[in-house]
């Protein structure tokens, strides 16, 4: 039987070595010079950050990073700012960022020493309806900093938005009885409505068997039987 599969809880790898290997010399030079400019003058990031995707490309780099997100992470980690000043600059980049820029900010959060200061950015993304932003928001930073009630709501929102739960960081350590209850109630609602129950909620629900009420048990057994058949 599958355990609760989840993205790694740990800090993502430093993207610089992978980037250096992949970028062509022109892009690499641009990025190195841009990072140096940002280190010398933090305001320079405001014009350089939006231009990254055109300069460095946007294919996949690693499981965690795309090329543009990784290159933008290089600029953000070059900012010579700390604490509130760093949070303010990052927040402005996110506030005026297009979705690709916002995803880059969200994915870089675990590499920046911000404490809880970036939680408003995570919350804003979770309120929205762009699933690419919701997914980017639910990385290692959210897993480490989001309060329990908000984390549970975020997981439930993923289920509604059809974001596979294996893309949500921290589910193995943060799934609790209350989340299992919420997902079981959701499953019940779906079964009563004659709609499909997404299978990826079942590992969480099964980890807390007492949340499954008598009337749900019967219905869920059918769903579970189907899943077990599929899993062989």
């Amino acid at each position: 039987m599958a355990a609760v599969m989840t993205a790694s809880h740990s800090t993502p790898a430093d993207p610089r070595p992978a980037l250096a290997a992949l970028l062509d010399p022109t892009a690499r030079t641009w990025l190195d010079e841009s990072a140096a400019k940002v280190a010398a003058d933090p305001a320079a990031v405001r014009r350089l950050f939006p231009a990254v995707r055109r300069r460095c490309g946007h294919g996949r780099l690693t499981d965690y990073w795309t090329v543009d997100e990784a290159a933008r992470a290089v600029l953000l980690t070059a900012l010579p700012l700390r604490d509130q000043a760093l949070a303010d600059e990052i927040t402005r980049l996110h506030r005026h960022g297009d979705p690709a820029e916002q995803r880059a900010v969200l994915r870089t959060l675990p590499l920046l020493d911000l404490g809880d200061l970036a939680l408003p950015l995570v919350r804003e993304s979770l309120r929205g309806n762009d699933t690419t932003l919701i997914e980017a928001a639910l990385g290692p930073y959210a897993a480490a900093h989001l309060p329990h009630a908000e984390y549970r709501q975020a997981v439930l929102k993923c289920v509604f938005c059809e974001i596979p739960l294996d893309r949500v960081t921290g589910l193995d350590s943060r799934a609790d009885r209350e989340l299992a209850r919420m997902l079981a109630d959701f499953a019940h609602e779906r079964i009563v409505a004659g709609r499909d129950v997404p299978h990826d909620i079942l590992p969480v629900v099964r980890a807390f068997p007492d949340v499954i009420g008598a009337e749900l048990k019967h219905a869920l057994t059918d769903v579970l039987t189907d899943v077990l058949k599929e899993e062989g």
């Binding site: 014009r47 939006p50 231009a51 055109r54 005026h96 297009d98 690709a100």
Partner: peptide
């Protein structure tokens, strides 16, 4: 503030 927006990809 247009400078920020005119720098965007799309």
């Amino acid at each position: 503030e247009l400078d920020r927006y005119l720098a965007k990809d799309r």
